[in-house]
Structures are given as structure tokens and as C-alpha cells.
Design a protein around this nucleic acid. Structure first.
Lengths: 326, 326
DNA sequence: GCGGCGCGAGAGAGCGCTCTCTGGGACAGG
DNA sequence: CCTGTCCCAGAGAGCGCTCTCTCGCGCCGC
């Protein structure tokens, strides 16, 4: 029940604490027989290194933070599990902890002080409010940060994103190939890069599309579709900039007597779980969220191990997943 | 850019390190003028306590773990955000970190060693495999643990749950009050307490219900409903033991030409986001997930601060949310 | 007036680990 | 055989903090 320290392991193995430490940390240059003795002592005593003590001298917390928007914005967000899982995949084998922080009053400040006092080695910022000053402060302080998604204003910060424009263009081509005559789009919020890019990418492919605005939420999808069929009843193909909005929009079409995809073809964006809970299941643009999250973790770890490394952002290519809706 | 230590704060304030420490930790018995001087020194130097150093001597990590099933089981699980948010609400103001761990090979062992080496003060276990030996080991080792949901076999462990039986009974009463004549239920997995209790509670209210088994997943809801309408076409009311299954089951009814709720009334369980993405929106039994999560955090913190305290589990009461499906 | 008591501040000993620096042994070259 | 070199183990100094213990001072009681 008593705590075992390195000192004790060393004593049992008949070596010095320094040598025991070398074995624990896999350092080179330890005589094979001594290494063996230490390893035996470790397992016989059930030794576990005290992370706080190590952290005190190495000045590494071996923990990174994941800053998320609060529950309301996150609720029903089907990405959370994938993001966590992707980050976990790269971070776990290294024994690094993933600390979750949901935005609330003072969260970002807390994250900053955790970072500065060495409690966190770096942070991943998800869905950051474009007006948020924190990312800027962090990079100004030279602290390791990675953004999920391109920042609204260009800034020297590492981010990981999917090629939103290309994805939206794929959706446009899909609808055109279905011989739709009257094509529309329900957009995301135009004060976010994702919202802007998806609209721009789509319009590049379908310049004469009818544009109705939404904000990525289900409810906004409902409202937008109601407006759309009111102002443009002959619509027969819609690119909806998030699966969640599509999920809200499709029942509106059904209620109006239109069949999906026979009367109106629908293409979504995200390939989130909402794509499968829609009826019919959504044809959608897939973002490899989990892989992107893993890449964010990798980028962050690189920044941590080699500070003052140049910012390198990576952009993933989306793909079209064809299902039943269009 | 240089790190500020307590030593330095003390020097600036013209007091000893001990006194500065007393001020930082809000200890009593510090002369008002000195306290003031220290506080000024803290803000002028921008001092932040080094958590590792503190943790080394207090033997507290000020971090708790949240052990989750892996992505596959979690995907589309609408609870994750609520759980995290509930725990965060309790834990954040105390400066305690929430460390997320998704189950993978060796996760639980890692959590155990984190706990034993003082890197984590306690853990919350979610969706634990009934056969998992870890919870037992943890309580045997006297380490703070709280379970989400009653354990399958009774064991002396603190858990937080909703009254599943009562919730299922509410669903039964609802269907009866709708004058359904032929009532059925699609169950959850019968090797989990939740699956068992929801079935038992429902049967207590509707003893002659047709029983079809599912496993809480969407796909199992599809399959179960197909079996149900095949074997019992005259069914006009179904209690489906999870919203996710209901979400899969309703389209099956639609495809068979049945209208919900006119031909078949549906009541779900969870009041997760899947309840809103169904069409029509689900009448369902609500579990206050976020509050339950907050309570788990509170129970865990209590166990941490007073070890060897008696196990006290708390059971929340569910409520029926009436929407359009039944 | 002096001893005792209480309260508040300082000194200092760790907490468990890493890592530099030193020392000693083995080997090779002169 | 002696010295220079290299390599590996041990000694020991912290990392920044908390907390006990001690000490000094002011006040009260006798």
C-alpha cells in the first residue's frame, strides 16, 4: 500500500538512483546485467514513476488540452466522439493525457494559465469564435496551439482543415450530374470560414444557384427549407452545407409533398452520424474527422517538442459519399 | 518570459516564501498588510503556481479521469457532450482537470496506473463492460471510482443512475393511455442493467406486450422493427428502449405504409438528440444526463476528499417528454 | 514586574525525480 | 609499465512548492 520510489527500486536492485532512472527512461549506456536487475526490482516492487516529480524537473506536463465550444453548440454535434478518438489514438501510446475543456466563463483564460504554468503542454482549439483573442495571445506567447479549421483572418498559426471549397464543388457537380434544373443551397453561417468556403465552392460550380442562409444547426435547416420552397417551389436539387441542417430540412420537403430524391435531390456535408439518421440516408461530402484530429495531435506534439518550428497547416481532401438522398 | 516562482514573489513582497505560500492558498492568519503586499507582488510579477511542484508535495493531481467506451460504441452517442458538460460544470470552478480516456487496448490498465501513481485522483467509468474486472480492482485498491449506471452484479461501489424501471413504466402507461390494443417493445441488450430494467419496468405495466430484442444501436432498431411487423402486423404501440433504435425503427414503419403516431404510437427512451432528429419527433423518457454527470463528479470529489466514506449511490427520476410520435 | 501564553512569520526539511558532473575502471597506445 | 582516453555508474544538486517546527513578540494574569 506504501508508495514505491525510485530510491527503493535502486536499493533493491543494488544500484544508484541515477542508474535506476536511466533504466526507467530507456537511456542508453547501462550495463545489461544492471538493467536486468533494475527491471526485476521494478516489477517486484510494483514501481510506478511519480509523474509530478518528473514533471517538476522536465517541465513537461505530458498533457494537452482540447478546447471545445459549450454544450449548446456541441449538442448533437456528431464530431466530438470522432475528434476525441482521433486525438487519443496518437496521444495515448505516448502516455500523454487529453484534458477536455468546454467553453464557459473564463475557460480560455484558464487554459492559458494552465499552459503558462506548465500544467498543459499545448492546446487544440475547436470551433473557435472568430473574434476570440485567445488564439492570437497564445501564438504571441509562443505557446503550442493547433486550430481545427482555418482561422477567419489569416494568421501565423498551425491549423488542420478539410478542403471545404473542393468538397462543396463536388456536391455541385453531383447535383448537376443528376440533371437537376433548379438548384439551390442552404449555407452555413457566413462569418465562419467553413460557411464561406462551402458557399463559394458550390457557387463556383453552380453559379446560378438559389442561396438561402442557415447556420449549421438543425433548426436553421428547417427554417431555411421552408423559406426555400416558398420562394422557389420548383427547386429540384439542394446542397445543404451541413448534415444536421439537412436532417431538419428533409422532413419539411416531405411535409410539402415532395419526395427525396425523386422530386428533390439532397446533398449534405460532413458525413456525420446525422447523415445516417436522415430518411433517406444522405448523400454527403465526407470529412475525415478522426484522421484530421489525429493530425492535429501530431502537429501539436511536433510544436511541443520543437518550439519555434515553422507553422505548417495541413488540408485534407474530402470525398463524396453517395447514399439515397441524391 | 522567465518563470516566476514563489521565491521571487516573496522577495518582491519582502516576506518569506512560507508567507507567500499562505497567501496563495488562502490560509488564515496572515497579517492584512503582508497579505496585501504579497497580492500586489503576485499580480505585478504575473505569478502562477507550478502545479507539478504543488502536486508533488500535496500528493493530489487535481485531475480526474473519464473512461469511455471506444468510438464505435460511442459514435452517434448523443450523451457524450452532456456528460462532459455536466462533469465540467462541477470540476472547473475547482481547477480540477478532466482527462478523457477512450477505451482501447490497455486503457483501463493505464487508468489504473495513473491512479496509483497519483496522476489522477479518481475516475468515472461510463458504459463499463459488465465482465470488466477493473472496477472491482479499483475499489479493492480503495481508489476513488464512480460508475455511470448500476453495475450488473451488486458490488460496493458508488454509482449514479436513473430509475430505469420507473421510466419504462411511464412509457407503458403512456401507450396504454393512448388506447393501444397491441403493444410491443424493442428491448436493449439483456446483459446490461439498463436493458434489463427497461424491459422489466415495461412488462410490469404491460404484461402482455410482445417482446423483440435489440441492443440499443440504430441498426438493431431497424432489424427489430422488421421482425416485429412481420410477426405481429397488428401492432399499434411500441416502446423502444433507446431513441437511437427508435430512430432506425420509424422509417421501417413508414416503408411498410404505417403512419406514426396514427397507426403505430412510438415511445422512446433517453431524450437524446436522436429524439429530435426522428420524424416525427419522439415522445420519450428523459434522463437528466447532464445533472447525473454533475452528480457523479460530486460523488467522486467527495470520495477523493474523504476516502473510506460509505458508498452512496444516487438514482434520478426520469420524466416523460411528450412530442409527436406517441 | 515577570513569567506564561498565544499568534503570526520565518527557517528549513523534504516531496520524487532528472541530470550534470565527477570519479574510477578498462583498454589501448606509447 | 605508465599515461591518455573513453565509457559507464554514483553522488548530489536542484526543480518549486508545502508544511511543520521554531522563534519572536505582544499581551495578560498574578
Amino acid at each position: 500500500m506504501k508508495r514505491v520510489t525510485l530510491e527503493e527500486v535502486a536499493r533493491v536492485a543494488g544500484v544508484s538512483r541515477a542508474t535506476a532512472s536511466r533504466v526507467v527512461n530507456g537511456a542508453s549506456s547501462v550495463d545489461e546485467s544492471l538493467r536486468h536487475a533494475v527491471q526485476k526490482a521494478i516489477s517486484s516492487t510494483g514501481y510506478l514513476p511519480n509523474i509530478a516529480a518528473r514533471s517538476l524537473v522536465t517541465r513537461r506536463a505530458d498533457a494537452i488540452g482540447l478546447l471545445l465550444p459549450d454544450e449548446r453548440r456541441m449538442d448533437g454535434d456528431p464530431h466530438l466522439a470522432s475528434v476525441v478518438s482521433g486525438v487519443t489514438r496518437v496521444v495515448r501510446p505516448l502516455g500523454i493525457h487529453l484534458v477536455l475543456m468546454m467553453t464557459g466563463p473564463g475557460t480560455r483564460e484558464q487554459a492559458m494559465s494552465d499552459l503558462r504554468c506548465g500544467r498543459l503542454d499545448g492546446v487544440i482549439l475547436v470551433h473557435t469564435d472568430p473574434a476570440d483573442p485567445v488564439p492570437g495571445q497564445l501564438i504571441a506567447a509562443g505557446l503550442p496551439v493547433v486550430l481545427a479549421g482555418r482561422p477567419l483572418k489569416p494568421m501565423p498559426i498551425t491549423y488542420v482543415d478539410v478542403n471545404q471549397t473542393a468538397g462543396a464543388a463536388m456536391a455541385g457537380r453531383r447535383l448537376r450530374s443528376l440533371q437537376c434544373n433548379r438548384i439551390a443551397t442552404i449555407t452555413g453561417p457566413q462569418d465562419t470560414p467553413a460557411g464561406q468556403d462551402r458557399l463559394a465552392g458550390f457557387l463556383a460550380e453552380v453559379p446560378d444557384a438559389v442561396v438561402v442562409h442557415g447556420d449549421f444547426t438543425r433548426q436553421s435547416g428547417v427554417a431555411a427549407m421552408e423559406r426555400l420552397i416558398a420562394c422557389c417551389p420548383e427547386v429540384d436539387g439542394v446542397f445543404i452545407a451541413s448534415d444536421l441542417m439537412a436532417n431538419g430540412a428533409i422532413p419539411v420537403l416531405h411535409r410539402s409533398g415532395r419526395k427525396v430524391p425523386d422530386d428533390v435531390a439532397i446533398v449534405g456535408f460532413d458525413d456525420s452520424s446525422a447523415a445516417l439518421t436522415s430518411e433517406p440516408e444522405l448523400t454527403t461530402v465526407r470529412q475525415p474527422i478522426s484522421d484530421m484530429a489525429a493530425e492535429m495531435a501530431r502537429q501539436l506534439l511536433r510544436q511541443i517538442s520543437e518550439p519555434r518550428t515553422p507553422v505548417t497547416s495541413v488540408v485534407f481532401e474530402p470525398s463524396l459519399v453517395v447514399r439515397d438522398s441524391g
